[in-house]
Design a binder for these strands. Structure first.
Lengths: 216, 216
DNA sequence: GTCTATAGCTGGATAGAC
DNA sequence: GTCTATCCAGCTATAGAC
């Protein structure tokens, strides 16, 4: 059947999740999938190619699944709610774990780097779209560029995932802090126009700001 | 000589840096150190033990080296300057790379997890001390707990490092955005007392805030 | 498409000569 | 303390039977 491919894809994700990128091999993946080891090479050519394809298809499915919910986000408070929900769901499924492992592997494996970057890009693009919508009108909108912010948010989640593996308490505290930071932005939405203008004036056009060094 | 140990420690760091956690073995490390493979086991017992010891000693040395500079930080602007400097220096030396790789490995290796957590803790503690000093008096001081913030900052840098490996442009934009976010905090330092009190009132005691769900 | 078998390599770890 | 030699496990990848 054509679902040996599917079994291998599922097995690949499962293996990265449980054994980490260093524990992935044609044998471990095939064992987890319950199929013969040689089929990895028959269907995908190499282990790396299997990983790439598995991760891309898994990510596409996840992003798809969240598109609707993200589209409904209109305020910072919404974003935090959906964000936490997404984080918990992804955590339970282990997708962020997989992303972190692949990123680690990709640092010294050009082949993995390409597909990992592509999958990561799917998330970043989605996050950016939401941020643009939610931050419109807040001082942040003209403070930081949206692509950069989206990348920063993604990076933070990846780092948190790794952090959580060795220090769950610390990671939880970090997540809470980040949420409270976001409250700052939320608060700005509710400020009176006078205060807002004062803030805005302080922030000035960021494009005109010299890129490095200037006296405080 | 007793510096075979040292050679192996240096070789271990170098190997993680260049080949990633998945590329580390007694043989690759020994080759990079220019010593015999069997000496890994004679001096350290196992590869994992070597990695643990190497990383802890390297981290201790780095934290030591930055203690002074961090102690001189008094404002958010200072913090950003030193932070960027530190980030660039660590990047050039590859220490954050190593940290990220070890964290990835530690997710499925309890032995690594312990020592990695310990080393990570060294950085977090240092960062927290600075944050407490710098944020004293800003609304952030009572918004988020300092340990959580320090962990969040650390996690963000780790995530950025991995991000950078597959998308350098995106990672750079993310870092820039984070710096501009920090400007928000800086701006608050300069706000008049009236505005500040308004902000503070909005933020309220975070301890009294119900942990989840409440109508907006 | 799937399986067995196997070549050829790299891995951790140890024994024992020096 | 260091080196050689070695065992054995696990790895990628392929050839070839079914």
């Amino acid at each position: 059947m054509a679902d040996t491919r599917q079994k291998l894809i599922v097995g690949a994700m499962e293996t990265i999740r449980t054994h980490g990128i260093a524990g992935v091999s044609a044998r471990t993946v095939a064992a987890s999938a319950g199929v013969n080891q040689a089929l990895v090479f028959y269907h995908f050519g190499s282990v790396d190619d299997l990983l790439s394809e598995a991760f891309l298809s898994a990510t596409r499915a996840r992003v798809e699944r969240y598109r609707e919910r993200l589209a409904a986000v209109a305020t910072v408070r919404d974003l935090l709610d959906v964000g936490r929900r997404l984080h918990e769901e992804e955590r339970a499924l282990g997708n962020v774990t997989v992303l972190a492992q692949l990123l680690a592997g990709a640092q010294s494996d050009a082949k993995l780097a390409g597909s990992t970057a592509e999958a990561l890009g799917l998330w970043v693009a989605e996050i950016e779209a939401v941020l643009v919508r939610v931050l419109a009108g807040t001082p942040l909108a003209d403070l930081a560029d949206s692509a950069g912010l989206a990348a920063a948010v993604s990076a933070a989640f990846i780092g948190l995932e790794l952090f959580e593996g060795v220090d769950p308490v610390g990671a939880h505290a970090a997540l809470t802090s980040l949420e409270q930071l976001a409250v700052l932005v939320e608060v700005m939405e509710d400020l009176g126009p006078v205060t807002r203008r004062a803030l805005r004036a302080k922030l000035r056009p960021p494009a005109a700001r010299s890129p490095r060094r200037s006296r405080a």
